[in-house]
Design a protein around this nucleic acid. Structure first.
Length: 567
RNA sequence: GCCUUGGUAGUUCAAUGGAUAGAACAGCGGACUUCUAAGCCGUUAAUAGUGGUUCGAUUCCACUCCGAGGCACCA
């Protein structure tokens, strides 16, 4: 049990004594002057006993002192009534050492969890907006893995619907020669993208075109037209193969793929099975009257008998349950523009399958906005994800010129740094809010950035290599004066990881890693780590470096960002 | 109009109802003949507005102003 857990349980007991209902806090204050840990129990106890927080705190300190005696150097009452704990130096150092000695390997100890994310649509462009759910979803998946869950990654893709019909209509109308079979996937996908843009443009204000596209849409559903099937299958294959190249770059490997085309029938069946009880007919369509639970009415099956997004999503939810039986949790990561639909979905599930509804967890993220506004296919200001990655990679290549990495290793390193920079810029802020995507900002490698963390990791790797050569281990170190700030950061990791997982907020982890890296770099700047003339003291700094590296490696990995050994 | 959501330094973002509102970038100013300068140190600068709840409010509530998403067969 670490110091945090020990003090926490001591406080828990105390709260029980006073029958405190509210939950207390135990944080690691940013300002070390406020202790290594600080709690607000005195405010809660004071409320129960009617004492002022400061008086209550004084009394509590007397009770706590003997209990935490072995860990704590001093306990003091501060400010309006906080109780601050200052750990004994050797307790804190020992705990940091534990971090340095521990292999941080995720072990499966829990049940299964489904995480669905990214969800690009075949026939459409994989643009920078898709990088958001990918980064967040991948990180959530990895956070569950860090907690010991067996995670199944699922990608749900819209391979049918009007966007596909629009593309096929465009392909048949815009008169461009299709790319050669030997052409790159990128070229093939770009060709599909142009067809879609052409179709969308023609569709606007043209009822005749719209009807033609609707007709194609029906044929796609029914697979009744040989020519259409052929084009469709080819286009879908191109798209999917192309997506795989991106997933490889991004470091995502899905376990299952679900297509809208395969869940529509199930969705319709489920809706019909509950017709009259949960759903009702209205103007030829089957709807869920959300008003009775404070929501909106949503169409699940349209008047042509085809499933809408809602029914397909229903089918998708059940499909995933089949693919991953007995999952304890089913997480879906989507943009917040579908928030309202998900509420309706959950309301429906509450009525037809309550346990499933409870397991379903919707995590929504904000939209990526360009400084000049929302991306739109109509105005043509959509930035393909790959274009952004290329752009970032170009800048990184310039910086790597005087490094001795070449060939495949260099390609990999450039990719890892570029993807790290992009993912970091997405994960650094709390999901849910829109983010302005500024090229220059995301391309920045200084300050709060992915490369800053990666660089710190690589830098430590270089130092530790030197330590190894000097035969300086981390055992039998001696401490002249402890690096309190860095140690404080190091021993905080376990709690931060816990919190990030619990709140599904990768940004907590990001913010913490920045603090840790800064504390390390600050120490690094003023302190020689590997010092052969003083091996015992040097061993202490090597221990701190090792602990920091362990955390950076595990933390970055949990974010889905690679931690290079050199850069 | 109704529902949901957001508004924090010049900019991009932090802060389970907690202490002096943190970073980074930009700006200004430094250090270093040491293990990776994508680094380190210092500094200027912010809670949209008005009330309320309480030991304490950026956080919760109400209203106002501004923005975003949704509101029946697109996803």
């Amino acid at each position: 049990m670490n110091s945090y857990a020990s003090i926490y349980s001591a406080l828990e007991e105390l709260c029980e004594t006073y029958s405190v209902q509210a939950s207390f806090s135990l944080d690691q204050p940013e300002d070390g002057d406020n202790g290594d840990y600080a709690t607000n129990v005195a405010f809660l106890v004071g409320k129960v006993t009617g004492e002022s927080p400061r008086i209550a705190a004084e009394k509590l300190v007397e009770k706590l002192s003997p209990v935490v005696d072995e860990l704590v150097e001093t306990i003091e009452v501060a400010g309006p009534g906080f109780i601050n704990f200052f750990l004994k130096d050797d307790v804190r150092t020992d705990e940091a050492e534990t971090v340095a000695m521990t292999d941080m390997v995720n072990v499966v100890t829990q049940g299964g969890v489904i995480v669905e994310y990214t969800d690009p649509n075949p026939f459409k462009l994989f643009h920078i907006g898709h990088l958001v759910p990918n980064a967040i979803g991948e990180s959530i998946a990895r956070m569950y893995e860090a907690k010991g869950y067996r995670v199944s990654r699922v990608c749900y893709q819209g391979d049918v619907g009007m966007h596909v019909a629009t593309t096929l209509w465009g392909l048949s109308q815009f008169g461009e020669e299709p790319p050669h079979e030997q052409a790159t996937l990128r070229e093939k996908v770009a060709y599909l993208g142009r067809a879609y843009a052409h179709g969308t443009q023609a569709l606007t204000d043209n009822e005749a075109v719209k009807q033609e596209i609707i007709a194609i849409n029906k044929k796609i559903f029914a697979r009744s037209d040989e020519a259409i099937n052929k084009t469709y299958d080819l286009g879908k294959r191109w798209s999917l193969e192309y997506f795989e190249t991106l997933y490889k770059k991004l470091g995502t490997a899905f376990d299952h793929y679900v297509f809208e085309s395969e869940v529509g029938d199930d969705g319709v069946r489920i809706v019909k099975e509950n017709l009259g009880t949960v759903f009702e007919e209205s103007d030829g369509a089957i709807v869920f009257k959300g008003e009775r639970v404070g929501l909106h009415t949503r169409v699940f099956v349209n008047s042509q008998g085809l499933p809408t997004y809602e029914a397909k999503e229903l089918g998708n939810t059940y499909k995933k349950e089949k693919l991953v039986p007995h999952a304890e949790l089913s997480v879906v990561v989507t943009a917040h523009e579908v928030d309202e639909y998900f509420k309706v979905m959950k309301a429906v599930l509450a009525e037809i399958d309550a346990p499933l509804g409870e397991r379903l967890l919707h995590v929504s993220h904000g939209m990526l906005r360009l400084p000049e506004g929302k991306m739109s296919s109509r105005t043509g200001n959509i930035v393909p994800a790959e274009e952004l990655i290329d752009l970032v990679e170009e800048r990184i290549k310039d910086r790597l010129e005087d490094m001795q990495v070449e060939g495949e290793e260099k390609v990999q390193l450039v990719n890892d740094i570029a993807v790290g920079a992009i993912k970091f810029s997405i994960l650094k802020s709390a999901p849910g809010k829109d983010m302005i995507f500024d090229f220059e900002k995301s391309l920045s490698f200084e300050g709060d950035s992915g490369p800053y963390l990666q660089y710190t990791h690589a830098r430590i790797a270089a130092v530790l290599a030197k330590a190894l050569q000097a035969k300086i281990g981390i055992e039998s170190y001696s401490v002249e004066r402890s690096e309190r700030e860095l140690e404080r950061s190091i021993i905080e990791y376990a709690q931060v990881l816990e919190k990030a997982c619990k709140e599904m907020g990768p940004h907590h982890l990001v913010q913490y890693l920045l603090v840790l890296a800064r504390a390390f770099n600050s120490m690094y700047a003023r302190q020689q780590i590997v010092d052969e003339s003083n091996k015992e003291t040097s061993a202490y700094y090597v221990m701190l470096a090792t602990a920091t590296k362990n955390i950076l490696a595990h933390g970055l990995s949990t974010l889905g960002i690679k931690a290079p050994e050199k850069m």
